[in-house]
Amino acid sequence: MYIFNFIIALGMAGAMAIMLSRLFAGPTLYDRVLAVNSFGTKTVLFLLIFSQLVGRGDAIDIALLYALINFVATIAILKFFRYRSLEIALAQMSLRRAVDDSFGEDDEPEDQS
């Protein structure tokens, strides 16, 4: 069973390497964010298998924390690159979005005066 878990962990590391190549190659920012997020999911799975391999339950807590940090980091990166600031509270975002939408209609001017 140890050997089997080791093979699964190796496969997971291979998947992580593939995801890293997309992280370096990704043409747009969103490809990279997607690669980081998916890499984090694989890291969580790798940590779970690792805790089974070395027989230490502590690694599961680390995996739990990593999953949480991965989620928060994705949201924070996206929020920063959309608003260029982390100071806006989430509750005010709908207000800010209305401003964004009025800016976004530059390519189709509506006033025909």
């Binding site: 969103y30 779970l48 599961i60 739990l64 994705t74 996206l78 959309r82 976004g104």
Partner: peptide
């Protein structure tokens, strides 16, 4: 604990996927 990790992944993965997709869509 493993079930908790699975539940967490199950709940957060659609949210982050939607966040990335929505950000890309809003960035045109």
């Amino acid at each position: 604990k493993l079930a908790l990790v699975g539940l967490l992944l199950f709940l957060t993965s659609p949210t982050s996927t939607h966040a990335i997709a929505n950000a890309a869509h809003k960035a045109k």
